[in-house]
Computed example of a mutant assay.
Amino acid sequence: MIRVMLADDEAMIRAGVRSILVTDAGIEVVAEAADGREAVELTRAHRPDIAMLDIRMPRLDGLSAAAELRVAMPEVAVVMLTTFDEDDYVARALEEGVRGFLLKASDPRELIMGVRAVAGGAAYLSPRIARKVIAQLGGGRLSRAGTARRRVESLTAREREVLALVGRGMSNQDIGRELFLSEGTVKSHVSAILLRLGLNNRVQAAIVAYEAGLVIGDA
C-alpha cells in the first residue's frame, strides 16, 4: 500500500486529488494538510511514503516544506503539485530533492501513474511541465558542459536507452523488464548516467532526457 500525505490550501483541490488517488486500491491518503507547516507536522506523525505538496501554501510554502522534510525524513519522497505559471519553481525544487512534479489539471491516470512511479523509486515529471521548464533550465546547471545532445553522446547506447526510460518516469524494476536487465544492472546504469552527466537526481536526468530529444512529451 502506498501511503500519501496530501497538502494544498484549497479544500476543493485536496478533495479532487484525493478522490482520484483513492480510485487505486493500492494508494491510501493517510492525512491532509491545509498549509506547509501542517504538512511537515502530519508527515512527521504519519510517516507516509509520499508527501504531495502544493507549491504555494500559507505559513510555509511547499518548497520550504520539502527542504525541511529532506533533512528530517529523507525516506519520504516529495511530489510537487504545480500549475503552468509556477514552472520557475522547478529549479529550486530540484535542489530540495523533489522526486516528482504533477499538474493539478493532470489527467487522473497521470496523477496515479506519477505516485506509483515515485513510490517505486523513480522520478516523475509531467511531460507538459518538462517541455516548459527545459528552456528555463537550459542556461543553468543542466547545460554547463554544453548542450544536452552533446552531453548525451558521451553515454553508451545502453545508457541512452536507460536515460530515455528514466525520462518516461519508469522505476528501475520497470526499466529492467523493458530492457531485459536485472534491477541491479539498471541501478548501476542510472548511477553511471548521473555521474557522467554531473546530475544529482533522477528528476534532473529526466529533464536532460527531454532536452536531448530522447523522450517525446505530449502537447
Rank of each mutant, 00 (worst) to 15 (best):
M1R: 14
I2R: 11
V4I: 13
M5A: 15
I13C: 08
R14M: 14
R14Y: 11
R18N: 07
S19Y: 05
V22M: 09
D24Q: 04
D24Y: 09
A25C: 05
G26K: 11
G26C: 02
E28G: 05
A31E: 07
E32D: 03
E38V: 11
E38L: 14
V40K: 05
E41S: 09
L42K: 13
T43S: 09
T43D: 01
R44A: 09
R44S: 06
A45S: 08
H46F: 13
D49N: 12
L53R: 03
L53A: 08
D54I: 13
D54T: 07
R56T: 15
P58T: 14
R59F: 15
L60M: 15
D61Y: 14
G62N: 06
S64M: 15
S64C: 02
A66V: 08
L69G: 03
L69Y: 08
L69Q: 04
R70W: 01
R70H: 08
A72C: 01
E75C: 03
V78S: 05
V78E: 05
M80R: 12
E86M: 14
E86F: 10
D87H: 12
Y89D: 05
V90G: 07
V90H: 06
R92Q: 14
A93F: 09
G100Y: 12
L103W: 05
K104N: 06
K104R: 15
K104D: 05
A105T: 14
S106W: 09
S106I: 07
D107N: 14
D107G: 03
L111V: 13
M113C: 03
G114L: 13
G114T: 10
G114P: 09
A119W: 13
G120T: 10
G121D: 02
G121M: 10
A122F: 13
A123K: 01
Y124F: 15
S126C: 11
I129W: 04
A130W: 10
A130D: 03
A130I: 01
K132N: 12
V133Y: 06
V133A: 05
A135C: 01
G139N: 03
G139F: 04
G140H: 06
G140F: 02
S143Q: 00
T147C: 04
R149K: 14
R151E: 10
E153P: 03
E153Q: 14
E153M: 11
T156H: 13
R158I: 13
E159K: 02
R160F: 12
G167F: 12
R168M: 14
Q173L: 14
D174N: 12
G176R: 09
G176M: 11
L179F: 10
G184T: 13
V186R: 07
V186A: 04
V186Q: 02
K187G: 05
A192D: 02
I193A: 03
I193E: 00
L194I: 02
R196E: 01
R196Q: 14
L197P: 06
G198T: 07
G198V: 06
L199I: 09
R202K: 12
V203L: 03
V208F: 01
A209W: 00
A209Q: 00
A209E: 00
Y210L: 00
A212P: 00
I216A: 04
G217C: 04
A219S: 08
